[in-house]
Simulated assay, not measured.
Amino acid sequence: MKDYTFYTLVDFIQDDDFRDWVRGESRQEVFWLSFLDRFPDKRDDFLQAERFIRAASVRTDDIGEAEVRKETQQFMNQAMAYRPYRQKKNTPVFQRPRPLWSSLVLAASMLVLVGIGWYFSQDRKPVNYITTSHPATQPLVETYNNTTQPLRVPLDDGSVVWLSPKSRLRYANVFARTTRVVYLSGEATFSVQRRQQPFLVYSGRMITKVLGTRFVVRAFEQDRKMTVQVLSGKVSVYKAESAQIPANKEVKGLVLTPNQAAIFEKSDGNLTKTIVHNPALVTSRQQSPTFKYEETPISQILREIELSYGLPLQFDEQAFSHVKITADLSDASLPQKLDILCKAASSTYEITDGQIIVSRR
């Protein structure tokens, strides 16, 4: 059993299983996901090693040899600056470091040199990205998930992206001060840390803008449509063409809340709002109703559904207040609940602009 109490940045980089986990190939997924809960003091070294391994394992875009060597030199400077002991005031300037630390620094040096050799030995063929009207203003790192499982990609601001298989994400090692921008081709689930700087996801002609929330973007090049599904918080979705107009201070787009989704049709550029396929409860179990009813007005049940799923629900309150039902809807999905209620009240429902409209026949 390894002793992680004294693990350093170099130890993480040299750990075979840790490297496999960063690349999405480890069988110890649960262990590494919960590692920082047990060793919170290792957070800085853990995250820095994760970024270093990921950057060394993926192709980069528009980063030349000078840039790579600059990043390498910065890493080595940090490694040399960190010592596991305090130097005494009267220690000579040219005193040799302790043998153990010398070995670690040497190992890090060898690892970096091997990484540089591998980087420049690769076939640097250009990669076809989703077309975007927003060119990057700084060098970007690219991560491509060639595994069969979602790949965890940590970002500079503490946000985390779960990149789906056969998906590609481009992002800056360090975000700009004004905005946080990433480029997605494929599908990913975003868990964005709340900051004052907006977080923008460019996926072809569709832009998703948030401050901090959880959402899913699907934008494969071969698909006829792109979608955004909101899991929590609030998301703005708009077309890239709208953002190009300088005088357009208020961009026309859609504002999505939990359980709502946006669909962008590539053929005609149409952007519409709807709801997700299987909405989830937005309230906690303690706050949610039991969905077990005995001679309860359907109007009351519909209001409880509206609050529990966070979706706007439009209906004639007076028309449904006289219809009562006895039923157990606790195990039913939202569509099933609505089907049962509409059947009992001789009514129908439809989804329009991200809201549910229930009408009497």
Rank of each mutant, 00 (worst) to 15 (best):
A55D: 12
E71M: 09
T72N: 00
G186H: 01
R69H: 15
D44K: 11
E65P: 00
K343Y: 02
D11L: 06
T227P: 08
I207L: 14
K266V: 12
F6L: 13
S267L: 13
T274R: 02
M76S: 10
Q28I: 05
G24P: 00
G212R: 06
P150C: 05
Q196D: 08
R69W: 07
E187L: 07
K209Q: 15
A219G: 06
D157A: 03
L104P: 00
D268Y: 00
Q336S: 14
S191L: 08
R19S: 15
A280T: 12
F12M: 05
R19I: 15
S167L: 04
Q28C: 10
A188I: 07
S308R: 02
D156A: 11
T137A: 12
Y119S: 11
V112P: 00
A107D: 11
A107Y: 13
I207A: 00
I301Q: 03
R124C: 08
L100M: 13
V105G: 07
P246N: 15
V10F: 00
K70L: 12
V181K: 09
V201G: 00
A261T: 01
L104F: 06
P84N: 07
N248L: 11
F120N: 12
P312G: 05
P279Q: 04
V216E: 06
I340S: 02
V105E: 05
F315V: 02
L104C: 06
E187V: 09
R43Y: 10
T274L: 06
D16N: 12
F31Q: 12
Q355M: 15
D331F: 05
D156T: 13
S330Y: 05
Q336W: 06
T290M: 14
K292A: 02
E294Y: 11
S57D: 13
F264P: 02
V192T: 03
S288L: 15
Q286V: 14
T257F: 05
L271H: 06
A108D: 11
V58C: 03
T296P: 00
I301P: 01
